[in-house]
Simulated assay, not measured.
Amino acid sequence: MTRRRLPILAVPLLLAPGASARLLGIDVSNFQGDVDWDTVQAQPNVDFAFLKATEGVGFRDAKLFRNVSEANRVDLPIGVYHFARPDTGGSNDPLNEADYFVDTAGFAMGEGYLPPVLDMEVFQSAGRSFLTSWSDRFLDRVESRTGVRPIVYASEFYAEDFLDASVLQTELWVANYTRNPNLNPTDIRGWPQGWLFHQYTDRRDLPGINTGGVDSNVFDGTLADLDALRFSAPVPEPATALLAAAGLTLLGGRRRRVG
């Protein structure tokens, strides 16, 4: 997919310190504890969120159900991510990890949700060919089960040296800590379409999260572009049962679309 690169905004001096005219979002996990989603949603420049769901095979984030339910309640666009463990081998092959991700967090891969994400950070010693193949098989499996190809998250270094974009055929969420949401990372070598999300800091101070700075991200597009990314298919049937077991609910059983 080829997208037009958005220019660096020329208006930061017109904004309050730390503010941005671009769409910003956060990503959280159990490390952020019990997020106060009412307070978070009320802040300027919190337009979306990604939530950790799973890691490897057998690890479900302890705050997954709570974060999904609470973020839905305040009507914040969200997606879920899987932290890949290609370094463990054995049962943690890409198909097993993909199935575990969908089986565990498939309720957040339905109507109104942002695309799921594959978080690639480890096992550089395996090399580019192995990590690209591993990622591609994971992406294919999730896409075959959900109808949506996941986005890949990686550092700029990892994306350039260990993942082949021409094979993966998906969008990139790149980590590059410019510390300023109005400063784009440099062009990502080997990713001609550029990046879709940019994690620009891991230290954003945000009311509602009291465990120190939180990861914050820029979306390369407008609100209409963000909405266009969201699933249009119904939430899979396991959603109600999974959340009911945790004592939580979705809004009307599914995410609402914006607009």
Score class of each variant (00 low, 15 high):
residue 85 R to S: 11
residue 137 R to G: 06
residue 105 A to P: 03
residue 89 G to K: 02
residue 117 V to L: 14
residue 151 I to L: 03
residue 104 T to E: 13
residue 149 R to L: 04
residue 88 T to N: 12
residue 161 D to Y: 12
residue 153 Y to Q: 02
residue 128 R to I: 04
residue 146 T to W: 10
residue 119 D to R: 07
residue 89 G to S: 02
residue 148 V to K: 10
residue 119 D to W: 04
residue 101 F to M: 06
residue 176 N to Q: 11
residue 74 V to S: 06
residue 148 V to E: 06
residue 106 G to W: 00
residue 125 S to R: 05
residue 169 Q to W: 06
residue 121 E to L: 09
residue 93 D to Q: 01
residue 117 V to Q: 10
residue 169 Q to L: 13
residue 83 F to R: 08
residue 97 E to M: 08
residue 74 V to F: 07
residue 147 G to E: 02
residue 114 L to K: 11
residue 154 A to Y: 01
residue 183 L to G: 09
residue 74 V to T: 05
residue 112 G to Y: 02
residue 76 L to I: 11
residue 94 P to K: 12
residue 144 S to W: 07
residue 91 S to I: 15
residue 163 L to G: 09
residue 133 S to C: 09
residue 97 E to P: 02
residue 105 A to E: 04
residue 131 L to C: 06
residue 117 V to C: 13
residue 164 D to V: 10
residue 150 P to S: 05
residue 85 R to W: 04
residue 158 Y to T: 15
residue 146 T to Q: 11
residue 168 L to K: 03
residue 111 E to V: 12
residue 75 D to R: 14
residue 107 F to L: 14
residue 163 L to Y: 10
residue 170 T to R: 00
residue 136 D to C: 11
residue 146 T to L: 12
residue 141 R to T: 14
residue 150 P to W: 03
residue 136 D to F: 12
residue 166 S to I: 04
residue 151 I to S: 00
residue 79 G to K: 00
residue 87 D to F: 05
residue 133 S to G: 14
residue 183 L to M: 15
residue 184 N to C: 11
residue 95 L to S: 15
residue 83 F to N: 07
residue 136 D to L: 09
residue 96 N to S: 10
residue 120 M to S: 14
residue 169 Q to P: 09
residue 113 Y to H: 07
residue 107 F to S: 12
residue 134 W to H: 01
residue 81 Y to M: 06
residue 103 D to C: 04
residue 160 E to T: 15
residue 137 R to A: 12
residue 151 I to D: 01
residue 164 D to R: 12
residue 147 G to L: 01
residue 93 D to C: 00
residue 75 D to A: 12
residue 85 R to D: 08
residue 132 T to N: 05
residue 154 A to V: 02
residue 147 G to M: 01
residue 84 A to K: 03
residue 136 D to W: 10
residue 174 V to A: 03
residue 116 P to R: 02
residue 155 S to C: 07
residue 90 G to M: 08
residue 138 F to W: 08
residue 92 N to I: 09
residue 75 D to K: 13
residue 124 Q to K: 15
residue 143 E to S: 10
residue 89 G to L: 04
residue 121 E to W: 10
residue 167 V to D: 02
residue 96 N to E: 08
residue 178 T to D: 04
residue 131 L to H: 04
residue 95 L to K: 15
residue 76 L to G: 07
residue 134 W to A: 00
